[in-house]
């Protein structure tokens, strides 16, 4: 079974947020408006976090684009009381918007803050939206799904063209849009894929790896100096 994963090269990433906007366009993620944004309720499945290290004299700043890391041992699906978020057979942590009761336990449990809540009805059917992704009602949690609908469409296209499914047909919106090609998406279980090769690089590290959530988004640290 394919193990979908992502490698984000922090040396290449320029913090331009193309991935953030591509994700919002692809998944109909709403802009919550000035008042709600000031209250800190911006929904941004892929969010570029800025880590500044104040102690150093020439303080180092690092841009970390953080999607949902689709953990293999997700702390969020354990705590959900109604099976509204679960790790589906493709290894993606999915969200069932029709079943979520909005208790927000998964938001408190996720150490990466990758879950966002619809405090009001932010998004309604509007022109220019992507019909492949449903719009989320008020009172439910939503999160990055590795553009799971693209996987399903790729599978259907493969079926329609009577050929077996080619992993390269399926790429997430953020990986497709990243101008610095810092985000590489693919099948981690296939050793020949670009993702697996990059994941084996000495610069590879995982975010909060010590928590044992086994995230499937692997970061490559910035290089120093030359070479």
């Amino acid at each position: 079974m394919a193990l979908w994963g992502m490698v984000i090269d922090l040396d290449r990433c320029t913090g331009c947020q193309a991935c953030v906007m591509a994700c919002k366009a692809e998944n109909n993620v709403p802009a919550v408006g000035a008042k709600e944004a000031k209250r800190g309720r911006i929904i941004s499945w892929m969010q570029v976090l800025t880590e500044t290290d104040e102690e150093h004299h020439g303080e180092k700043t690092r841009f970390i684009p953080r999607p949902c890391l689709q953990c293999d041992d997700p702390p969020c699906t354990k705590v959900c009381p109604v099976y509204a978020t679960y790790r589906n057979p493709d290894g993606i942590v999915a969200q069932i918007y029709a079943r979520c009761i909005g208790c927000r336990f998964c938001m408190a449990a996720c150490p990466y803050n990758a879950k966002y809540f619809n405090w009001h009805t932010y998004q309604t059917e509007k022109p220019g939206q992507n019909p492949d992704v449903s719009v989320r009602p008020k009172g439910v949690v939503e999160k990055c799904t590795f553009c799971h609908h693209r996987l399903q469409k790729a599978r259907e296209r493969a079926l329609a063209e009577k050929r077996d499914f080619d992993p390269n047909d399926y790429v997430t919106a953020c990986a497709q849009a990243c101008p610095a090609q810092a985000i590489v998406f693919g099948d981690l279980s296939d050793p020949t894929s670009a993702v697996s090769k990059l994941a084996a690089s000495p610069r590879a590290f995982k975010l909060l790896e010590e928590l044992g959530t086994k995230p499937k988004v692997i970061y490559l640290s910035e290089g120093e100096g030359r070479g």
Binding site: C16, A18, M21, A22, K24, G128, Q176, A177, Q181
Partner: peptide, 12 residues
Amino acid sequence: GTLCPKAFGGLQ
């Protein structure tokens, strides 16, 4: 095939 964030503002 890649874009900057502003390109997606075109939809809006």
